[in-house]
Write a protein that binds this DNA or RNA. Structure first.
Lengths: 191, 191, 191, 191
DNA sequence: CATGAATGAGTATTCATTCAT
DNA sequence: TATGAATGAATACTCATTCAT
């Protein structure tokens, strides 16, 4: 009895997700050029051919991995902090605490964050994205109530996430490295 | 009639420096894995063989390029600011102004800075280096006179240079990107 | 549907053996340095990449080829002559006849013999090997019954195989060259 | 004052001889393909360019080295033994003693002998040469007086020199290896 | 003639991708 | 779909030879 169309789609989706999930650490640690398909598939536990069933090319896989990481990060509680009914300065603290705690505790969180921020932090993309918008709106709010430094909110948001990015990179390369404290991280916003 | 020993030494020195100098932008833009020896030598205007007269391997070249960039940055006026007879806060300002102005004006300064900071910023090296020591001593001084935020000076110095690094990366990938202002950069130190 | 594990193992085994088998003549004729991977793979009828699926490097392939040739030679009837219930002098004659006949008739036998003896004959190895042990024991036996010249049996065995080696080389380079007769070859042992 | 034509010729000859002399060990140890011009010239203590003043190519140098080695060996006392007024068996002994003693005592004698015999021993040349003729005539003489085994004298001479060749190779690769004794060597002739 | 830096064709090796099973 | 052997274009590196000085 052949599988139904839905079952097939589900299985396909699961396989694809498994590959994306496990690819993240390779791209995070070694970049696109530094990641070898042979190592990757061996690490994942699939054949090289299987990869090309789900992805057209290494480049394609990498792009999907970036999207996957962005969605993972954005689907976290992170975005919910923006809607809490507390002053901007508290929101910022919740976010900083959350990120730094996760970076400290979950190795994979660093990989996700690194890849989620990669293109923007390196100046390769200016596209809108939820993380950026989140921080921008909090900064505007905080500037209005006087608790944050004046200045271009978009620029400051980018500053904030750039710092998060570079510390994700550090943590990814050296898991024992010391992270910033929340108040250190917040300096870039609060001035 | 052969060239004199000095002539040869000079030719060798010049060739090696030319290679190092011109390699910087390739490694800064593309990293080690992304830099192809064929492109590199074509860009420099030498044969592939010539490269291997001076460097044992691509990896070797890359390491020498990193050192070269570090020395270039450290040989700038940058280190002299530390010895000026002004308060720490003024030294910091001179340094911030200097770096941001150079990053803005000279494309190659970004390449040098990026490579000079690369290993440390990515958590791949903890070795002492002049830039790091410079900032650490200024921070200690500023903490003593109360103008900078308290905290581990080494950690704060690393924070500062990490920000300089990531903005060098941005500038390298997108020459038109907007840089931080000095006071924005200084936030990570002043709190 | 993927091949079964056994099918793959068989394919691998066959491919590897095919490469080893066909490489022999290249290394026998041209040595390691004189053998070009491009020529070799073209001659075998495979891509260059395929070679590196089975062997780590040219050096590695060469070493495996040496072993393969040794095993091939040692798996021949050659070793069985030692156990026959005849005097040493007859064993020696059987062996001499066998080797010289095969050298004469099968071009590939010369390649195998050449490579099997290569390292020992050139003074690059003193390891025990079946051919050497075979001859040593026959020599000891023949010395005991007085039919062979006195002297260090190991040294005499090496002498014998050295002569076989150099005539294999000759035959490999000049297929029309005249070989020794058995009694000429046996002189080194019989005195 | 420019040098006279003769002086120039003499200097040229000396330089060339020096190169030939010192090249021998490289070709003896590593063969043509295994000998790198860079190593060779460095070892000799001349520039790479200088080599091409005297020799057209590596191949050319190698051929001249072979000739040089042959002449060196043939200019030794070796050839004089043939004219001594003693039985063939004594001549053979003188020659065997002489060769084995020189091989034992002078490392460079092995290199010369190896190269002098190289092409013939490997079946790459059938040209007449003095060593070969020397042995052939002694063998014929010994066969006439009944002290040597019957058979084709040319073939036996080749056999003799092949053994000398392979033991030169051994000695060259492993200077501590044990050589044959004269009577062992003579077996191939005496039967 | 001598030097040694430079060349570039040649060579070994890698790796993303394909394809028969 | 899944496998992994095979491909071949790309890549790093070598080395005999040339040439300006």
């Amino acid at each position: 009895m052949p599988r139904s169309r839905e079952q097939n789609a589900k299985i396909r989706e699961e396989s694809k997700t498994k590959i994306l999930q496990k690819s993240i650490q390779y791209f995070a640690k070694n970049g696109v050029e530094g990641t070898k398909i042979g190592d990757l598939t061996k690490g994942i536990g699939i054949s090289q051919g299987a990869l090309y069933v789900y992805f057209q090319s290494k480049e394609d896989l990498y792009n999907e991995v970036l999207l996957f990481a962005q969605q993972k990060i954005a689907s976290e509680e992170l975005l919910q902090f923006a809607q809490m009914d507390v002053p901007a300065i508290r929101k910022l603290r919740y976010i900083s605490d959350y990120i730094l705690k996760k970076l400290q505790e979950e190795k994979s969180y660093g990989y996700h964050m690194l890849l989620a921020l990669e293109r923007r932090a390196r100046g390769l993309s200016k596209e809108d994205d939820p993380l950026f918008d989140l921080m921008k709106s909090i900064i505007k709010e905080g500037q209005k109530d006087g608790s944050f430094a004046k200045g271009n909110a978009a620029k400051t948001a980018e500053y904030f996430w750039s710092v998060v990015y570079i510390y994700s990179v550090k943590k990814c390369n050296d898991p024992k490295c010391e992270l910033l404290t929340s108040s250190e991280l917040e300096r870039v916003v609060r001035g």
